[in-house]
């Protein structure tokens, strides 16, 4: 079953910002990455899905129901962590979470305690007095306390220290094992790479590609780094499949997609001091998508 289905979702405001014709589906039980630079339209897409703003055209369907028509019903099973967390300042953490839980028809107090303990969050403090990272934790607990079937996270890790990030990721993976679907929006590739099964890449309000993380990485791209004994002859590597060639004296690095054997035969002609062949970062692969558009 598809938990999220976006059909040509378009939202324009004024001229500058907005999204156009975003379509993708997220299956049940998936951890789906949503990645793009700041201002690409990730938050706009999410806010449209949650009907905080309404689509100009196209539609979003969640749990098989139209996101505008059935908004309150759908939201019973959604947990949302906004990119910036703002709460009613004069409330205590405990009161805010209780208030948050009161919207759902179940008892969330056990779960609140459990999550707060896990994330090391003091329930008796005033929200106003919390640091940015701790406010984010309140947001996480607030988003998970009703054990939703779909968790939507918008830049969830900003403000969390690495240790807490790890705890948070573990928590998400645990939820995912129970069958929870997760939409994970981020501009940080490494965390998406770590967490997600598939990823949608968005740029300037348009969807660039939806791809499996594994396929993206496979795509036969390898990063070659070598150190030669003598400077490499000019034009030696001018063959198909070589990209991003950088020559710095005796150090050479490039991305290669194609038949590995051919490349190795070619390199065998050189006298090498050292050779590394690595999986490229997603970052490098993504840069291609962004550059292609320009």
């Amino acid at each position: 079953m598809n938990v999220i289905e976006l059909n040509n979702l378009t939202k324009t405001y004024g001229k500058a910002r907005g999204i156009s014709n975003i379509s993708f589906t997220v299956e049940e039980g998936e951890i789906f990455g949503f990645i793009g630079p700041n201002g690409a339209g990730k938050s706009t897409t999410i806010r449209t899905m949650l009907s905080l703003i309404y689509p100009t055209s196209g539609s979003a369907t969640i749990f098989g129901k139209d996101s505008v028509k059935f908004a309150p019903e759908i939201k019973k099973e959604i947990g949302y962590l906004p990119s910036e967390v703002f709460y009613y300042d004069n409330m205590k953490v405990k009161d805010l979470l209780k208030y948050s839980g009161s919207f759902y028809k179940k008892d969330c107090s056990q779960r609140i305690k459990q999550l707060a303990e896990l994330l090391d969050l003091d329930l008796n403090k005033k929200i106003d007095d919390l640091s940015f990272g701790n406010k984010k934790k309140v947001g996480i607990v607030q988003g998970l306390l009703h054990e939703p079937k779909l968790i939507i996270l918008d830049e969830p890790t900003s403000g969390l220290d690495p240790l807490m990030q790890q705890k948070f990721f573990d928590l998400l993976k645990e939820e995912n094992k129970k069958g929870t679907t997760i939409l994970f929006s981020s501009h940080i590739l490494s965390e998406v790479q770590k967490m997600c099964d598939r990823v949608a890449i968005i740029k300037e309000g348009e969807l660039v590609k939806v791809e499996k993380i594994s396929t993206l990485k496979e795509n036969n791209h390898k990063r070659f780094k070598l150190e030669t004994k003598a400077p490499m002859p000019q034009g030696f590597l001018q063959i198909a499949g070589v990209q991003n060639l950088e020559i710095d004296g005796l150090h050479v690095s490039f991305l290669y997609s194609g038949n590995i054997n051919l490349m190795l035969q070619k390199l065998a002609q050189l006298e090498l001091l050292n050779l590394w062949i690595e999986e490229p970062d997603l970052e490098e692969i993504f840069m291609h998508y962004y550059e292609k558009g320009n």
């Binding site: 949650l50 905080l52 309150p72 939201k75 906004p82 910036e84 967390v85 703002f86 009613y88």
Partner: peptide
């Protein structure tokens, strides 16, 4: 104004309510 709309509107409550 206080940017709590994102919190409230993600809850299962209609705008009419």
């Amino acid at each position: 104004r206080d940017k709590t709309a994102e919190f409230l509107m993600a809850k299962p409550i209609s705008r009419t309510r």
